[in-house]
């Protein structure tokens, strides 16, 4: 982990770290380096990947129109709304 890679990862994750946090993240990566070494010591060339430990099904509902929540309810936790719309900064000049 170097500063340039960290800067790229901050940008990708929409985070801006303080200097103290950067040191903390770099330390975290250094300690996780051992994790990669442990894994590389295990032979898996003939092993299938396991994404889910048990079968997973797609949840479907009846194909009918419904409105479980009103617009007001959905916007109750919004940081800022205006006449039923979520407010964000202008994106088109």
């Amino acid at each position: 982990m170097d500063r340039e890679l960290l800067r790229r990862l901050e940008m990708l994750n929409q985070l801006s770290l303080t200097e103290e946090e950067k040191v903390s993240v770099i330390g975290f990566f250094e300690r996780r380096g051992a994790d990669s070494e442990v894994l590389s010591g295990i032979e898996t060339s003939e092993v299938e990947r396991m994404v889910h430990v048990l079968p997973v099904m797609t949840v479907v509902r009846e194909d009918v129109v419904s409105h479980p929540f009103s617009r007001d309810e959905l916007q109750r936790g919004a940081p800022e709304t205006d006449e039923g719309y979520w407010c964000v900064p202008r994106v088109i000049e």
């Binding site: 960290l6 903390s24 993240v25 898996t44 990947r49 396991m50």
Partner: peptide
């Protein structure tokens, strides 16, 4: 924040097969 940044790095093009995919196979082991 450390977890987010570490997690995103394990999913990067460079590391996906080497790290994330490997972890999925180790899960089966």
């Amino acid at each position: 924040k450390s977890v987010i940044i570490y997690g995103s790095e394990t999913l990067s093009t460079e590391n996906y097969m080497k790290v994330y995919d490997k972890a999925l196979r180790v899960r089966r082991v």
